[in-house]
Design a protein around this nucleic acid. Structure first.
Lengths: 179, 179, 179, 179
DNA sequence: AATGAATGAGCATTCATTCAT
DNA sequence: AATGAATGAATGCTCATTCAT
């Protein structure tokens, strides 16, 4: 069995803190305190802090993929599907508990040799890229997927830097141009 | 006089380590050890680790602005100037000691309330944006500056995530399209 | 369970050092070294050095109250009880490991805003004052409690300043006069 | 020449801080910063922090002796002179910048082997004791000097502990009784 | 006489991890 | 499955003092 009340508490708390504060800035002590579990309980479920990070990223990756696809599926035409993704970004980014992209936030904190974690992040981003390609394949424009995905991440990081919504609109505009 | 051998050693070493390992993952102890100076000497020149970070970002910001402008000035036509900037990115990003954008690397490590450091980063990015606008003004296309700057940062972060040169080429292609 | 071998070692060692050397002059490093425990073990039991100080003062306060009362109870007459307290002071103050009053020693080291620690000290002193009043109540002389308590502390501090037993005898004499 | 503008600044600042914050809690850095002098200038005038403490205590000792004598000399009768000293204490102790007795505050911070500094403090206290004896000699009551001095210090330390004026009144009352 | 720069040793506190129960 | 206790190593920062100019 992979789930338990304690394990869930740990993952939820760690996810919240890793997202809000960053990975390195979040200590094991804060996690167990806010989760209300014992330190040894955490290490029973996760061999290391990095394992907990991987769990966080994996779970959020699946959630994010599902959310993006759900938005796209609200429309029929490929172009509209794509633009809906950017609209979704715009919507999410103004929510009070939004602190940027879960995955881009972590990537700069990783040690150079952290292939395992970087792999999880890369996979989520490749899923986005693949989603764009899948959407565009029916109209034989799948070659635009890379450009759109780069606009997607550009919008996210620029929004993070400036704390402002304009980059997402700019990305959407640009996406509209090339489609 | 603002310079001294010790101060220079500190800034150089801290810059190298902050860039390669990240800010939080780099300790004061490592900096002083590799710089070969006493701990109190570091704190004579910088009141806190954050001050050292600000110095690093400020210096790199000026250097980066100068380098980008130097590349652009090799050409006459605005479009060529812009594309030269992306070519420069492509060139730099394959160098062995390249670990991504100095500024985007740091931005995700910052506590939410770190306005001072975030301000330095934002300024450097605004300088890039302004540079694009300055280049395009003669041909009355300065409204494209935001889109180009977003492509610029999108290229940098996507390159970081995937450890691959394709995003920079993709960004350049897209830049060419809209110019 | 509130006790453990490690915790006891920490409290005993810290108490000895705080008493002999003072609070500010005693470092955490010396405490853990002489106690033979790891630094993190200390912080498992006490959130801060100040918490350890509070523990020391609280324990010593209880011990001191008990000792003083035990001395007083050796006699029947209120006057004899009171004088017995001063005799006890005289006895204790010539012991080789006597370095003055645990509580008065600390009070001058406290930052002006240290209400918590100062409260512990004040409480112990109020206990002494109350003890004097309790002793004197049967003979309706409880109004002398304040004067006697002030003599008590005067004896302690003057003994500390001069490293000599005379102040305690002088205080006892004066106490005898007013009773 | 023993005086200079810089030296005066140092002594004044150190005195203020040693008094308000205590000796150990006051760092050299804070002194030179608030005094507006260079660190090496401080060490030119005082070989060590302890030397600065001795200077502070010596100067304050002389000032205190003079002030107490000035109060006593306002009256003719020995008893009135003595009571005037306690009235002076009461007056001083309610001033906003009063933090207790300069000398008793320091005595508990001293390492056990600090004979030099302890000697300065002891001298000042002996001066008070001698003053009481001098006042009482004309009426052949100089044997009360020790008791009065002990009341004097008892009033000061008890006032410090409780942050309240009552101990000084109590001491004065007691002094009146025995005179 | 005065100073800015430099230092080794120490400060209180927190890190991620392990172990015995 | 869950825990409280324990740890070695590292954190960012400050200490009083000295040196070269």
């Amino acid at each position: 069995m992979k789930t338990s009340a304690v394990r869930n508490q740990i993952v939820e708390t760690a996810s919240r803190l890793f997202y809000k504060q960053g990975y390195n800035a979040t200590g094991i002590n804060q996690i167990i305190e806010e989760a209300g579990v014992a330190k040894a309980s955490l290490y029973q479920h996760f061999h290391s802090k990095e394992d907990l990070l991987v769990e966080y990223l994996t779970v959020k990756g699946a959630e994010t993929n599902a959310a993006l696809k759900a938005e796209a599926e609200k429309f029929e035409a490929p172009k509209e599907k794509i633009l809906a993704v950017f609209d979704f970004l715009a919507e999410v980014s103004v929510q009070p508990e939004y602190y940027g992209c879960n995955f881009l936030n972590i990537v700069s904190e990783l040690p150079v040799d952290s292939d395992r974690v970087r792999g999880v992040i890369r996979k989520q981003k490749d899923d986005v890229r693949a989603m764009f390609a899948d959407i565009l394949r029916p109209v034989h424009k799948e070659k635009l997927a890379d450009e759109l995905y780069m606009l997607f991440d550009g919008a996210l990081i620029t929004n993070k830097v400036h704390g402002n919504a304009w980059p997402i609109q700019t990305a959407k505009t640009l996406a509209g141009k090339i489609l």
